[in-house]
Nucleic acid binder design. Structure first.
Lengths: 152, 152
DNA sequence: GGTGAAATCCTCGGGGG
DNA sequence: CCCCCGAGGATTTCACC
């Protein structure tokens, strides 16, 4: 589908705050409430808007330790790859997992409570997965930027 | 603040879909609508819920090229660090930026249209920032997992 | 934590340019 | 095709138990 300037602005607004009423949006977009409603429905039906979620402040709950784990598999047979991806997806500590180019095969973003929790995660969960060759972990010192909003 | 089991489940539900009505939530939690309303308000006021956002499917817009950039600064004086972080935050292609431990200082997640757009980003935007020593980029081959929901 | 009612909002049929 | 108006039904919100 194609977007005009109004769609772009609407998407931007919804990425900032999806709980705005259509009335508020209609003011910001100089449209009627119905027009806003129809544009949003179109974005939802065309799969542009994937879903609406609440973002939790991780400092508010006791999880503020973020680690990035590079992982290399022992082999790259389809069977090993599929099994690894399936197992790693199940782990709730793993927020993101990407198959990437470079020296390692995967990059994981892991969120836990503290270093001790990370150690337990590595020993009891991650390295329990078969076919993992080597790992290399980096720890987050500070979060400079983190947005879910993508510009269009 | 402390959470009971109901709060935990409520947070889980809102992280999956924040547009559910309080009525739907009240059914899933075996509570009255008002009780749900008050628990949500408490989570918002205590800063547990940061915000409500729409997630856009990046395939639906023409941006599906993800790169991870490691960056090392030439120096680590406070002035250089602050300026780098300020400049990099401004870049709309940079979705995430973390100060990390290890061989490099920063890890960036960059979203652009394609490899050509990434080249332009590197040449015209990122390496235009002062005090960048070296960079090392990895490209996403496949997104195995990506969630904004954190378990509590 | 629950009840009830007012204020507000979502949703859609109908119509215009 | 994109937009607007208006009204019924659903939802949010709040004082009170």
């Amino acid at each position: 589908m194609t977007f005009d300037a109004i769609d772009s602005k609407l998407i931007k607004l919804l990425q900032e705050d999806c709980k705005q009423t259509n009335k508020e949006l209609s003011n910001k977009l100089n449209l009627s409430i119905t027009a806003v409603y129809e544009r949003i429905k179109k974005l939802e039906n065309n799969g542009v808007i994937d879903k609406y979620v609440a973002l939790i402040k991780k400092e508010a709950i006791e999880k503020s330790f973020v680690a990035f784990c590079h992982i290399k598999l022992t082999q790259h047979s389809q069977e090993y790859v599929i099994q690894f991806e399936k197992e790693v997806t199940k782990l709730e500590e793993v927020l993101e997992c990407f198959h990437i180019s470079g020296d390692y095969d995967y990059l994981l973003k892991v969120l836990v409570k503290d270093m001790e929790a990370f150690r337990e995660f590595m020993v009891n969960k991650l390295t329990n997965i078969n076919h993992i060759g080597s790992t290399h972990s980096m720890f987050m010192i500070n979060e400079v930027k983190h947005t879910t909003a993508i510009s269009i």
